[in-house]
Amino acid sequence: MLAQVIVNGILTGFVYSLVAVGLTLTWGVMDIINFAHGDFLLWGMYTAFGLWSVFSVDPIFSLPVTIVLIFLLGYLTYVLIIRRVLNASGLTALLATFGFSMVLKNIAQLVFTANYKNVTNTIFGGDTIKLGSIYIRHDYLAAAIGSLILSLLVLLFINKTKTGVAIKATSINRSTAQLMGINTDGIFAFTFGLSGACVGAAASLMVPFTPITPSSTALYSILAFVIVALGGFGNIKGALLAGLLVGVVESVGGYLLGTSFKYAVIFMMYLIVMQIRPKGLFGW
């Protein structure tokens, strides 16, 4: 039974990782806490739902669409809002993203109402694989693998491509990066887009097993905050591993102490870990 619980935790953890990787990009690189991150996820899920219910597109095929659309949403968020508050104190930008979060959430509510929406009969469906005594649902597995691949792609992109290195350079020192000829404004816009793309992908992957309502992603953004801090701000590898850790701790904690405690266990773990490593598990 415990093995089953751990496997479930790992599968959820990979999805958490992808959401957190998206958040750590903006938080780490630009030092901006994007309160609308969860609402990006929400809009990704509604996009996938819309495509499924209107055009019968399976979420796995709408993945590219949600990636592109939420990339654009992130990009526009930067261009229209964040750029203008970039030089103000961190809390000012936070206020702006909070306002934007209200806008996104309530438009969603206006359009889709507060009723739960479900995407059903997807390709990966509710079937399971049996490995010994462990059952693994196809859609969970697909989401986990998809999330892992995409997280690794982002990691590779940041470390191996020219744009990626420019993002890194900008995160370390904005003005120096500027002097090196990096268009930091463009980098920031792209980073925000990339952050959106991550949650857009996560949205399509989650939608087969996550009922959608305007408030259903709030918890994801709180967990993403914790994961990002746990992994060290701006540390993609850190976010990936911390996401996995949080998934497992949540699952095992819920199993041992009862489901009402599963999130409390995560927060407790955060407080304890930070006493030992005040800059996150993998922070620099």
Binding site: I81, V85, T92, L95, A96, F98, G99, V103, N106
Partner: peptide, 10 residues
């Protein structure tokens, strides 16, 4: 209201 907050902050 959300838009107004953004406008004030910007």
């Amino acid at each position: 209201f959300g838009i107004l907050i953004i406008v004030v902050v910007v």
